[in-house]
Design a protein around this nucleic acid. Sequence first.
DNA 1: ACGAAGGTTTGACATTTATCAATCACTGCA
DNA 2: TGCAGTGATTGATAAATGTCAAACCTTCGT
Lengths: 232, 232
Amino acid sequence: MPESHRPDIRKLDLFSEMSDENFQSLMHASYLQTFPPQIELITEGDASDFLHVVVDGSVELFARWNNRETSVAIVRPISTFILAATLRNAPNLMSARTLEKSRVVLIPSEDVRRIFDADNNFARAIVSELASGYRASIKKTKDLKLRTSLERLANYLLRQQIREGGGPEFELQTEKKRLASYLNMTPENLSRAFKSLKPYGVEVNGSKITISNQPDLVKFARPSPLIDDKTV
Amino acid sequence: MPESHRPDIRKLDLFSEMSDENFQSLMHASYLQTFPPQIELITEGDASDFLHVVVDGSVELFARWNNRETSVAIVRPISTFILAATLRNAPNLMSARTLEKSRVVLIPSEDVRRIFDADNNFARAIVSELASGYRASIKKTKDLKLRTSLERLANYLLRQQIREGGGPEFELQTEKKRLASYLNMTPENLSRAFKSLKPYGVEVNGSKITISNQPDLVKFARPSPLIDDKTV
DNA sequence: ACGAAGGTTTGACATTTATCAATCACTGCA
DNA sequence: TGCAGTGATTGATAAATGTCAAACCTTCGT
């Protein structure tokens, strides 16, 4: 893999504490590839041959069953995906597709496992990353089981607002179709849900959201650090 | 902690490969406690002071939000819970209560983290356990998002059938009220869902289930190793 | 054995969410 | 510039799921 993206990858929590030698060894074995939009990088059920790192663009993780499909996560630079499958040497549970033109680093799973065995700092970082992903997944379950779709949307907007800097105006950064699937609703329903949030001070203009009455929305959404916070 | 349960705990994947010395050190620092039914061992949001191991009885993990409550998992001997919070030294995301009289080993989180740093085999086992739990949680998300409540019930029955030995007759091992919450439905709805499965050969008598037409039920449920299998 | 308490089931009904069909709006390209 | 393709919205309707109330059934302790 070329050198150019290495410093960015090195900065990731997952790789920042490992030895230089092991990091270079990992990078040496990996590939940087550029993909056009809408390419299915991974199909669920496939063996997890590579740990993926998105360095540019965006990748959707989704799942299929019985002719239905649901969006599980959208991965943006710079972060990894499919770590758990890589470590367990087990089939991927989700499919992945590029949403736009994207660059992805592919690190052979075998090398990840080998260096995990050799580098304690890397192992520690992996535990941290896994525990964090695990907890994020449990939060998602709580979000799904404890909230109605309207409440999920309201809390999503508050989270997205924070990610975008915290101001009253921000962009969705995701097609509404995909957002609907992510929130487990239909596009029609999402469209109506936005209208239902109008009385709480949510204005929608294309992909631009304006939250004109933050306290009211918060009062309705009741965000909780045990469901919504990014870290913790 | 007394010696009696140690061999059973030692056999857990999480503890089986670590050094004797470190295992004894962990056990030495921990407590074996017996709790009556319906005791809330942990409240979500609390600091994760202990890694818990259920050695007898059963413990329900559940979550609350906005005056609602949902059952997330039921832990039976011999297994651990609250591992991710322990490792990240972060607040628990779920509450836990005993369902019956139960015995639980409490291992101070601090010791778990200390020995994780010192014992590579333990660290490896922790990664394995975390990755496995993470994947189980993603499967739960897929189950929730891709299936209707009827389909969730049908697949649950097939999984429970396997856990109970695979024969056409088996016990639910869980109150229906709790099962309903676990499957994200109301008790009333669960009761009706059982009736809806009758045409597919499901007979219910109290907590005894008889699957009289396995192929039909499987055809309806369409279980998938990427959602339903215990391991993988 | 009895009765209280709580789980389960049933029926009637309300709410939420999905589906289908049509229209509108936007984007990209010929 | 115009048009095809796709996403977004709207209205009408259907299906899934939740709520409420009552009856029934177990369990368990007195």
